[in-house]
Design a protein around this nucleic acid. Structure first.
Length: 266
DNA sequence: ACCTATGTTATCGC
DNA sequence: GGCGATAACATAGG
């Protein structure tokens, strides 16, 4: 789940639950979920500090502590957050993948949960510098049209690999890159250089719409508006926009789904 | 047993 | 140095 819309939903969830609460203790159930530094150092860093603010950049969620340090959270392919109260059942199987538990001063705990252990949490001094060090591109919902066009202009290969390149643009992953291309009627293998200015501007607009609509639907495939590809990611499925046939191809070791009727090849 | 799955990173060949 | 393909990491489900 965790592409830009999902992480935005996590951010809003965090903002209305754990934010403004003080961390009393950190339980590290899986050392591997601490991406940098030692679990002890992370515990020391968060204990007795309030979670003050949050920011999202691409698929990263940053949480500011009251001493101006930050937690950088990445969710890999299966991570999410859960805010659990003392009365909430803990042994329902869900809790099995809670890797980190932040015990808060309101008696609740914020769980960083992740079935597959890709991703994790680490302490960073500054999200900007962290992002710069990793050469992370601008957030897909914050980037201006001008910068989008400029960055895309420096690209050579297929449009889908450009859209999912976090150094070019942060936030789109396999699912939402497909979704944007589906909306724009562009085949995922189309070389960037074959897209004229109009098509590129269209991509920008469609990207914004897709992301905003997905967030409004809580990034839930069940709630997403009709006309989204997301619930129809299956070879042979009917295209919800034109009645064509959804096809699956492999690109860069990943599945790409597209409509063979309205996303014309090359 | 094999394939698939929302991510990132390293490596190889062109 | 860029780009595509591939494997690796980890875990579960079909």
């Amino acid at each position: 789940m965790p592409e830009l819309p999902d992480v935005e939903v996590y951010k809003r969830y965090l903002d209305r639950t754990a934010l403004h609460h003080r961390v009393e203790a950190l339980e590290v159930r899986d050392k591997g979920a601490v991406r940098a530094g030692s679990p002890a150092a992370l515990s020391r860093a968060v204990r007795h500090h309030r979670l003050e603010a949050s920011e999202r950049r691409g698929k990263y969620l940053f949480v500011r502590l009251d001493d101006a340090r930050w937690l950088a959270m990445h969710f890999g392919m299966s991570g999410f957050l859960r805010y659990v109260g003392p009365a909430d059942g803990e042994d329902d199987g869900e809790a099995r993948y809670d890797r980190l538990l932040f015990a808060l001063d309101d008696g609740h705990r914020l769980a960083y949960s992740n079935r597959r252990r890709l991703g994790g949490v680490q302490l960073v001094d500054d999200p900007q510098r962290f992002s710069a060090a990793r050469k992370l591109g601008p957030d897909a919902l914050a980037v201006s049209e001008g910068e989008f066009l400029e960055r895309l202009g420096g690209k050579r290969g297929g449009i889908k690999s450009a859209l999912t390149d976090q150094k070019l643009l942060a936030g789109l992953g396999n699912i939402y890159a497909d979704e944007v291309l589906f909306r724009s009627g562009i085949h995922p293998r189309t070389p960037v250089e074959r897209l004229d200015d109009k098509a590129r501007r269209g991509l920008y607009r469609d990207m914004r719409k897709v992301l905003q609509e997905a967030i409004a639907a809580q990034a839930d495939p069940q709630r997403v508006p009709n006309g989204f590809l997301l619930p129809h990611r299956e070879d042979g499925a009917r295209c919800p926009r034109c009645g064509g046939t959804i096809r699956r191809i492999a690109l860069g070791g990943r599945s790409s789904y597209f409509c063979s009727r309205h996303q014309r090849e090359l």
